[in-house]
Amino acid sequence: MASRDDILGAVRRAQPPATAHPGVAGLGNRFPDLPAKFAEMVAVVGGTCLRVPDLAAADRALRELPVHREAKRIASMVPGVGAATFDPVAVADPHELAGMDLCVLAAELGVAENGAVWLDVRKLPHQALFVIPEHVAVVVQASTLVHDMHQAYAAISHAPGFALFLSGPSKTADIEQALVIGAHGARSCTVLLVGA
């Protein structure tokens, strides 16, 4: 506790005179065709966006993809989408998820300016489910799309637990700036945009 008080005391003595918080109003980007921009940006960040009318169509579209056809261990957090081979709720230790091929996830919202989706991991039985599978598929309702990050933060709340913006698959350019997809997390990210 001594260090805490020392640090806070030193900071208090060092602080410059008060200036106002400028707020975040008046910033942002607007797109004429929200679903089209979102789909475009998912592709820019290395993902694949499929626009489907409803969940049944999302299921059909997903099952045709190699990431589903070639998958042996599949979990789905979206009822009716994907042919789940096991229920992660029954898995006690997240380490046992290693080697799973595909996880189907539901996003709370999608952001058009950067192709990111907001995943509320609090609703999942294991935090690792968005990062440990070889591939992920994310279901986004078109009605949840927002234009930019300002709108996104206005829409989300921060209860205890973990959540994230996921934008495309895992990637790296650490070797000579050559972009490689599939560093540690998912090797592909399929976004199923429903209702647009």
Partner: peptide, 11 residues
């Protein structure tokens, strides 16, 4: 990039 791939919020 328009945003990083993983923007993780730990609460």
């Amino acid at each position: 990039q328009p945003v990083s791939s993983y923007t993780s919020h730990f609460h």
